[in-house]
Design a protein around this nucleic acid. Structure first.
Length: 116
DNA sequence: ACCGTGACTGGCA
DNA sequence: ATGCCAGCCACGG
């Protein structure tokens, strides 16, 4: 919290850009925000994602393996996969099926965008 | 100002 | 193939 304007905001903004029915990885988001070297920060931003407004679709954000790493942080262990299923994404054993097919990479790079 | 923590990733044993 | 270790950045106490 503290300053609402921070690296977190960048992450939220990117995550919110994720189209419905698609998912993204921490590495991709980290890269989009300029901190690909530290995907941890992305996860950390997500930690506060449910405390900010508008709510960030963190359920579309998974780890590199397509595993619902943060599903346990949603409040309900089945909330995350349920949301993904609602988007047309199939989840099996906390893992996204055809993860690569649903994988979406943020093309908007706030820090590396040469021209937009 | 320092240390610890954190929903990750990649490499090495 | 699986497991463990180290690196990375940012925020909180």
């Amino acid at each position: 919290m503290a300053t609402e304007k921070s690296f977190f905001t960048e992450v939220y903004k990117v995550v919110r850009k994720i189209p419905k029915g698609k998912v993204s990885t921490y590495g991709a988001i980290a890269e989009a925000c300029g901190t690909r070297l530290s995907a941890r920060m992305v996860g950390w931003a997500m930690n506060a994602a449910h405390t900010v407004t508008p709510p960030v679709p963190a359920h579309r954000v998974v780890n590199r393996n397509g595993l619902l790493s943060g599903k346990h942080h949603f409040g309900s262990p089945t909330l995350m996969e349920d949301l993904l299923k609602s988007e047309g994404i199939k989840v099996k054993d906390d893992q996204i099926i055809d993860f690569e097919k649903h994988l979406w990479i943020p093309k908007s790079k706030p820090l590396l965008s040469p021209k937009k």
